[in-house]
């Protein structure tokens, strides 16, 4: 598949899933937290509008799944934005200032890199009582390292590029050099890495929720739904397969989208 078509196909799919997650609960009469012990583990059907069936507590799985997607996507996007802001600022400062400042800043990144972060996140979740907001921060705090490294490397090489020297010589201000010469040339790679950070954030969130350390009942996310599905899978396989498929589909779309965007920017760069 060519870069451009990958972008279009995966972009459209993600848009569809998002719209479905936003609109779904609104057009389905059920809600995500009402339990009904008379309708436990019903298979998907049009009866009672349980399109995805019901879970072990008789809650409607369609609406719960849509809620799960919302939570998963929200966590991932916010976490990616956190890592974007920290990573770009950190990397750009290190790369642009250079010298000793850069050396110290990157030494810190190297050190943090060697940490088993996921275990620290679990520590955090334990220590701070599974605070939902904390998930964003924790995940963002993991993922900014890659972004910082990439932005710093790119900034460093751009700063040495001769068109920046030419601008300095003619008296162009530092602000204009940053915003007109360096930033536009960073844009492509930043977009690609944000796209690739989102699935990583989704992975971490679903991992935590799966272990029962993430979102708390009655709230849910795709990882929490998979966890619930695992417990019911011998009696009702759909409770596992539906959220698992959606989770995999979303992750795959983001990964393919990131790859497609990278090809696109690479091609444009080498023209």
């Amino acid at each position: 598949m060519s870069g451009n078509r990958t972008i279009k196909v995966t972009g459209t799919l993600l848009l569809l899933i998002t719209v479905m997650a936003l609109v779904g609960p609104w057009i389905n009469p059920n809600d995500y937290m009402t339990m009904d012990l008379d309708r436990i583990l019903r298979s998907p059907s049009a009866a009672g509008m349980h399109w995805f069936g019901t879970d072990g507590l008789g809650r409607d799985l369609f609406v719960r799944t849509m809620h799960g997607i919302r939570v998963t996507m929200l966590v991932a996007i916010v976490a990616s934005l956190v890592s974007l802001v920290i990573g770009v600022a950190y990397g750009a400062i290190a790369g642009f200032v250079g010298g000793r400042v850069d050396a110290v800043m990157m030494r810190l990144v190297d050190t943090l890199y060697a940490l088993p972060f996921i275990f620290f996140v679990i520590l955090l979740m334990v220590a701070f009582e599974r605070n939902f907001l904390l998930i964003f921060v924790a995940i963002g705090a993991i993922n900014w390292l890659d972004m910082a490294r990439i932005v710093r490397g790119q900034t460093l090489s751009l700063r040495e590029r001769e068109f920046v020297e030419a601008a300095r010589l003619t008296g162009v201000s530092a602000a204009r050099i940053i915003f007109r010469h360096i930033a536009p040339n960073l844009m492509g790679i930043v977009i690609v890495y944000v796209t690739l950070t989102i699935p990583q954030a989704i992975l971490v969130e679903s991992f935590l929720s799966f272990l029962g350390l993430g979102v708390q009942e009655p709230q849910t996310s795709l990882g929490a739904l998979v966890d619930a599905g695992v417990n019911q899978m011998e009696r009702a396989a759909f409770t596992l397969l539906i959220p698992a498929t959606l989770l995999a589909a979303i992750l795959m779309c983001f990964n393919f989208l990131g790859d497609g965007l990278r090809d696109y920017f690479d091609a444009r760069h080498s023209q």
Binding site: E162, H181, N185
Partner: peptide
């Protein structure tokens, strides 16, 4: 003013 060796890297793409 300065003119560089490699015109490709001397012009902002």
């Amino acid at each position: 003013q300065l003119v560089f060796q490699d015109p490709v890297s001397a012009l902002n793409p």
